Simulated assay, not measured.
Amino acid sequence: MKIVKFFQYAYLIFAALFLYDAINKYITNGTIAYISILFSALAVFMYFFRQRFNKRYDNKDNSK
């Protein structure tokens, strides 16, 4: 179960990478990288979704 918690934090790493990519493209080219911003927002959403899902799953295991 510990590997699942690792992937939860991997979403934050990917969000930071996509956000860095979007900022870097904006600074160098002056264009807005909507796809990178979208993936960054999706990764942050998935982090909170997985965190909430894991808490719910842990509560079910503790109640048995």
Rank of each mutant, 00 (worst) to 15 (best):
I3N: 14
F18S: 05
Y11H: 11
I32T: 06
S63F: 13
S36A: 14
I23L: 15
I32F: 06
F45V: 10
R52S: 11
A43W: 03
F7P: 00
Q8R: 09
F39D: 03
L38S: 08
I3M: 05
L17A: 11
L19E: 04
I37M: 01
I32K: 03
F7V: 02
I23E: 00
I23A: 11
F39L: 14
I32W: 03
S36V: 05
L17F: 14
Q51W: 15
I13C: 03
D21A: 13
L19S: 15
F39T: 03
K60T: 07
M1Q: 04
A43G: 00
N24I: 06
F6S: 05
R52T: 09
N29V: 14
Y9D: 00
A43Y: 08
F14C: 02
K2T: 09
I37F: 06
R50M: 12
I27G: 01
I35D: 06
A33D: 15
Y57D: 09
V44L: 13
M1D: 05
F18I: 06
F49H: 07
K5G: 03
N59I: 10
Q8I: 13
K25E: 12
I3P: 03
M1G: 06
Y34Q: 01
S63N: 14
K60S: 11
G30T: 03
F49L: 10
I23R: 01
K2A: 10
Q8A: 02
L38C: 07
T28Y: 15
K2R: 10
L12V: 01
